[in-house]
Design a protein around this nucleic acid. Sequence first.
DNA 1: GTCAATGCAAATTGTTTGCAAACGT
DNA 2: ACGTTTGCAAACAATTTGCATTGAC
Lengths: 140, 140
Amino acid sequence: MKNSYIISFKEALKKENLKFTNQRYSIFKFLVNNDGHYDCDSIINYLNKSKIKVSKATAYRTLDLLVKYDFCRKMVLDDGIARYENKLDTEHHDHMICVDTGKIIEFVSPEIEKIQDEIAQQKGYKIIKHVHQLFVKKIS
Amino acid sequence: MKNSYIISFKEALKKENLKFTNQRYSIFKFLVNNDGHYDCDSIINYLNKSKIKVSKATAYRTLDLLVKYDFCRKMVLDDGIARYENKLDTEHHDHMICVDTGKIIEFVSPEIEKIQDEIAQQKGYKIIKHVHQLFVKKIS
DNA sequence: GTCAATGCAAATTGTTTGCAAACGT
DNA sequence: ACGTTTGCAAACAATTTGCATTGAC
């Protein structure tokens, strides 16, 4: 992981008057180093396996912070479970979710991005963020 | 409300071996007659005001059914709360959500639809459904 | 040593489920 | 009359919160 990421993370903590703790850092590190989309339990389980103890309370508190400072992205599907993924160093992208296997595939389309900007602007708005998910099945 | 909608509704009930009850019909009627995006509680509150008693259990059971038979659409935002809206007689559309006011504005873009179909196809998938939400702020 | 962070368990919230009473056919 | 639906209250699951203990600085 780039050193500058750790510095940014420490800066974010400072801005919020929060301390640099092992739990916060472990969650941060896990998300930055692992591509994928993880719910809170998965993250905790993974860290527990690495002998790092983190409680749900701390995990959720930290994840909120990471989202707030754009270190990661939160996505909620129809099942109501929040999933988090690294946002540093990754191009912006959206998601295709296979309804049969649950597999998540990323995609980007500058064309779509452009059109949606225009749509918002036409109605007098600017886009803060967007969610674009395609629920798909393999073509047989 | 068109009579054919009621007939379709009764057909769906028959297909599921379910009876035509006042609660089911009231929820159906509320969603078909009202444009907007309602969570379960709002629907129940509205019906209660009209002196129609519906419990959460029944409401959720009925909403699942309405979604299954394409009478309405379910959407879950980052807050994890499910919202339902009429799907009959309405063009397919996506949503812009104002982060300041919570106002929901609908939009459609055949161009975007086309591009996303192509993206899915390129990866060997077909789209079953999609979610496209723009979170926006008014341009000041 | 101080004040904030943690983990636990309890609280909260949206949703689901089991079951006796009420209702549609 | 029958089997289904309903409403209630209890169960659930994800997330949040209060508080005593632990830890960063």
